[in-house]
């Protein structure tokens, strides 16, 4: 034993202690516990949503999101870093936006990625679409905006019957055909692939389809059903009757209380993370924080833990 340690334990009685046996028994016990829980309770696995489901079950909402992508009014189009240079979802800590400092690293252009790109890829087999795209591209920006605005008004009056969407006729130029083709691509399942496609053969990055899915009603409705919304402690909840990430209770608590829900609402995420970072640092540095580091001395739980030791005068 090292000299300092020997000095530290001067006068302390030692007893045999089998660490290896303890580990083996603990591993066996945890293994049995986990096998029993898994066998009895299984695990949550709610199937993922697809763009196909979204386009089929909520065609009006799907087309609205496509139109918002085209005219630049959508949430993704206005998001800001790291996707683009807008400011819709940019958050600040005081005067500083770390989000802006890091800049655009994962470029997403909704008009190109969600509308024009997928349509371009299918125009070869669809002369009417090719013509519509040509008309749209060569039109002045003001005309494009006029068509988009007219389509937006018509879409609000659209009738949705199951997966079928009937839009009143409008002077929307090529936009009508473009949107109807996008709906067909969505409902056929082709859009799920088209949004995923990069120039590579293999795909592992779901940024574009997930960003699109993020703002669909279908996503929000399903999350609401399972009580996963951030405003209702959703961060620590799980689909079904399963425990979630209960260890995130402190972080998600902040999303329920003022000033995070009131004065700081525009920057909730950034300020909640800042708060949790500060609290984590406090926990980390607890041994050196005067007052806090004496808390366990004041709360007499240690007397219970070591009661045998105290009762036997240090010889037990």
């Amino acid at each position: 034993m090292m000299a300092t340690k020997r000095a530290y334990y001067a006068g302390v009685r030692f007893a045999p202690y089998d660490l290896v046996k303890e580990f083996v028994f603990a591993l066996a016990a945890v293994t049995v516990l986990v096998i029993v829980l898994a066998a009895l309770l299984s695990s949550p696995d709610v199937p993922s949503l697809t763009i196909k489901t979204v386009a089929t079950q909520t065609p009006q909402n799907y087309v609205q999101l496509e139109l918002d992508s085209l005219d630049g009014n959508g949430d993704v189009a206005g998001y800001g870093p790291p996707y683009n240079h807008q400011s819709g979802s940019v958050q600040y800590i005081g005067p500083v936006s770390v989000q802006n400092l890091f800049g655009v690293h994962i470029p997403v252009n909704p008009a190109r990625d969600y509308v024009l790109g997928p349509l371009e890829q299918t125009r070869r087999s669809d002369p009417a679409l090719a013509a519509a795209l040509q008309t749209f591209r060569t039109a002045p920006a003001t005309t494009q905006s006029k068509w988009e605005a007219a389509y937006n008004s018509a879409l609000l009056k659209a009738k949705q019957q199951g997966s079928k969407l009937t839009i009143p006729s409008c002077s929307c130029g090529p936009v009508t055909l473009m949107m109807s083709r996008l709906l067909a691509l969505g409902q056929s399942g082709a859009m799920d692939g088209l949004l995923l496609t990069s120039r590579h053969f293999y795909q592992t990055d779901y940024t574009r389809p997930l960003l699109f899915m993020n703002y669909t009603d279908a996503m929000a409705n399903k999350a609401t059903k399972y009580n996963l919304l951030g405003s209702t402690w959703g961060v620590m909840n799980e689909t079904g009757n399963y425990p979630g990430q209960a260890w995130l209770w402190l972080y998600t608590l902040l999303y329920q209380i003022p000033p995070y829900t009131t004065a700081w609402a525009a920057n909730t995420d950034a300020l909640a993370i800042l708060t949790v970072t500060i609290l984590s640092l406090l926990l980390l540095l607890l041994p050196w924080i005067p007052g806090l580091n004496r808390l366990p001395r004041i709360i007499p739980v240690y007397r219970l833990i070591w009661r045998h030791h105290y009762r036997t005068g240090g010889n037990g």
Binding site: P44, S48, P82, S89, M213, G234, N267
Partner: peptide, 26 residues
């Protein structure tokens, strides 16, 4: 790769992005 992942990813991205982490941890 289920609905849980889709939801946690789309919600978590805002928190990551808000402090700049999202730029390299997507």
């Amino acid at each position: 790769q289920n609905f849980d992942s889709q939801w946690i990813a789309t919600q978590g991205k805002d928190a990551m992005n808000s402090v700049g982490v999202g730029a390299f941890f997507n």
